[in-house]
Amino acid sequence: MLQEKIILNPDKWIDNYADYLFNYAVVRVNDSDLSKDLVQDTFFAGLKSAKNFQGKASERTWLVSILKRKVIDHYRKINSKKGQAEVRMSFYNDGENEGSWIEERVPQSWDNASEKAIENQELKTQLDNCIDNLPEKYALVFRMKTIQEFETEEICKELDITASNLWVIIHRARTQLRKCMEDNWFNN
């Protein structure tokens, strides 16, 4: 059976797909300006490679696959960025104490925890600040896994990382966030 070949129609791209692609990007990179750039790059790349479009997938699927590449490129860029704020380690990396808590990073009991209600705008702001303070790479993976609740497999596929790599990042992000909230909220 002959399937009708889909033909690209770039004049309609913005009206038909801009919002969808923009939301797709924001959900992943959590940055509106960066998302605008990624969507723009996607459309340009689409125009450039329009002649390679085989008409098998829908226009949207094809544009999303281009945007996915753009997200991976962005992740690789922030992953290799030298001198970016590195996450503070909570455990000794080597020596006889390898894997043990570094004294000043040991969790303290949260004395005020019960007084501080969860439904509180200030707390939400503090949590946002702590997430924003994470190195970009950690924040990106943490948000995808914890806030957007993507499946592990999906994140690994989208960012081209292994599952054990993902768990190391999640672990570092969470220990750093716990410490940040302890210092700035629970025991402040």
Binding site: I118, K124, Q148, R174, M181
Partner: peptide
């Protein structure tokens, strides 16, 4: 202790997730 506090943090993340996941971003 870490585990106890971690569960509490998960609660905070869950609240944040619920607030963020339903938001659709438009250009």
């Amino acid at each position: 202790l870490y585990t106890r506090q971690n569960k509490r943090m998960s609660g905070l993340y869950k609240d944040k997730s619920a607030a963020c996941k339903n938001k659709i971003n438009y250009l």
